[in-house]
């Protein structure tokens, strides 16, 4: 009995591999399009605006926006990868197989979130490599850079997973990323330092959780941050904890998965 109750690692691997295979099958959509959009950001923000703002906190503007750009893609792609991965089988009905398989909810999460996070981490690194072609980069705290990268990818993949389970229509699937995440990211200091904002906006911005992600991530590159790195890390972990709690609740109740 105890032997049979052992974790089903093969299932985790099967789901993970399937998810990764999907990414490689849609290589154009998953990898090439973010490279193109990153390059466009560099042309528009880096060159057009960068010619007017030469540097922020002693960092060349082109280099300054790199961590923010990576976070922008990391957030949106983690959410869309994970939400789509679980929404699609729900939509076509093939979820029956997952629900009838001897897998625990935890294993389902590890596999799907792991797959989505892996894809967005790879994406982040591709953007980093692309950026290195445009601007000179330096990474002062590589360990923390990787830590923020992984934490953010996992957190937002979990968040995407929740959206994918919650969504009943494709419209709802797009709703949260479009109406909440994208604005928060743009207003989260991807392209500027929040110190550049006028008084009240600086305070309002502090309610935006994305500010902490970008600030901490930028610190790992250049050692300069809008808010202290400890606060950034704390906020990231807090958001991760909230997502884990929601997921735990979903799976305890079978919310929108099992009638």
């Amino acid at each position: 009995m105890t032997l049979r109750a052992a974790p089903n690692f093969r299932a985790v691997w099967a789901i993970y591999r399937m998810e990764m295979a999907r990414a490689f099958r849609t290589v154009l959509q998953s990898i090439i399009s973010p490279v193109i959009s990153t390059s466009l950001y560099f042309v528009v923000f880096g060159s057009a605006i960068g010619s007017r703002i030469t540097e922020i906190d002693g960092i060349a503007y082109g280099a300054f926006i790199v961590p923010g750009l990576m976070m922008l893609s990391l957030l949106t792609q983690s959410i869309s990868n994970a939400s789509f991965a679980i929404y699609f089988p729900k939509f076509v009905g093939s979820i029956y197989e997952l629900l009838s398989a001897p897998v625990s909810y935890l294993e389902i999460i590890i596999a799907y979130v792991g797959g989505a996070a892996t894809k967005s981490i790879m994406l982040g690194l591709i953007i980093l490599a692309t950026a290195a072609l445009f601007v000179p980069l330096r990474i002062e705290h590589p360990f923390w850079m990787i830590a923020f990268l992984v934490l953010t990818a996992v957190t937002f993949s979990l968040f995407g997973f929740i959206i994918g389970i919650w969504a009943k229509t494709f419209e709802q699937l797009q709703l949260v990323p479009l109406l909440i995440v994208t604005p928060l990211t743009f207003l989260g200091g991807s392209f500027y330092s929040i110190h550049m904002l006028p008084g009240i906006w600086k305070t309002i911005t502090l309610f935006n959780p994305v500010v902490y992600l970008i600030s901490g991530f930028r610190w790992s590159f250049y050692g300069k941050a809008d808010v202290s790195v400890g606060v950034s890390l704390g906020m990231t972990l807090l958001f991760l904890a909230i997502c884990i709690a929601i997921v735990a609740w979903i799976f305890r109740t079978g919310y929108r998965l099992r009638n």
């Binding site: 089903n8 093969r10 299932a11 099967a14 591999r17 399937m18 398989a101 001897p102 897998v103």
Partner: peptide, 12 residues
């Protein structure tokens, strides 16, 4: 791929 996936999902 899909048949092998099913096998893996069931822990075989």
């Amino acid at each position: 791929a899909t048949v092998n996936y099913s096998r893996g999902l069931f822990g075989k």
